[in-house]
């Protein structure tokens, strides 16, 4: 209980810091911390697999990628001039809606919530008989019942991979940068 309140408080503090901080390096670091804290909390919530993944992917890979980008693209954020009233309003409305929505939700940890009771026999038992006793049910599910989502996930990664290659590879073979596309003369002028 207290541990989770502690972690939740830290999470909120981190999130607000990320929102306020102007130095992008620091913001990225805090994002990593945020992910890490999130992972800790997931561990408390009995989701070790997600926690490990989040720690590896959220705190690790994505921080790494962002730092890489920062190295290429500059590290400080210019203070925004535009008013933040509209975004604040939007966020307030969305948040209020969500909180309103929680009021009818089953309480935290309620064993009678539909999530726990709807599927009968539960995934735990079903996977035991279907998988002949594979201990980690999450893995079992990932590979079996929802294996198709996993395939989709692989496709997403594959898509992103090709996309990144497509975007970053700059090849102008045989291309004169004429005004083929827009008379508004937007030929690519690299920063270099």
């Amino acid at each position: 209980m207290f541990v989770s309140i502690f972690i939740l408080t830290l999470l909120v503090v981190t999130a607000i810091t990320i929102a306020r901080i102007g130095d992008l390096w620091a913001a990225v670091m805090f994002t990593g911390i945020f992910s890490f804290l999130g992972a800790c909390w997931m561990l408390i919530l009995d989701a070790p697999d997600v926690a490990f993944t989040e720690a590896a992917v959220g705190a690790g890979v994505s921080t790494f990628l962002m730092l890489g980008t920062l190295a290429l693209a500059g590290k400080t954020e210019k203070p925004t001039t535009s008013s933040s009233v509209v975004p604040l309003f939007v966020v307030a409305v969305t948040g209020a809606a969500l909180i309103y929505g929680t009021l009818d939700m089953p309480h935290f940890g309620d064993p009678n919530s539909p999530v726990q009771t709807r599927i009968e026999p539960s995934f735990m038992e079903k996977s035991q008989s279907d998988m002949h006793g594979l201990p980690n049910v999450v893995t079992a599910l990932l590979a079996s019942y929802r294996g198709y989502d996993t395939l989709g996930e692989t496709a997403v990664i594959f898509t992103a991979g090709i996309a990144v290659i497509l975007i970053l590879r700059r090849s102008n073979d045989g291309f004169k940068s004429n005004d083929v596309f827009n008379s508004q003369s937007n030929s690519r002028k690299g920063s270099q």
Binding site: I162, L166, V180
Partner: peptide
């Protein structure tokens, strides 16, 4: 997103 970014202008 990737397909759109293939447009010839920097926009």
């Amino acid at each position: 997103y990737a397909l759109i970014s293939l447009g010839r202008t920097r926009r």
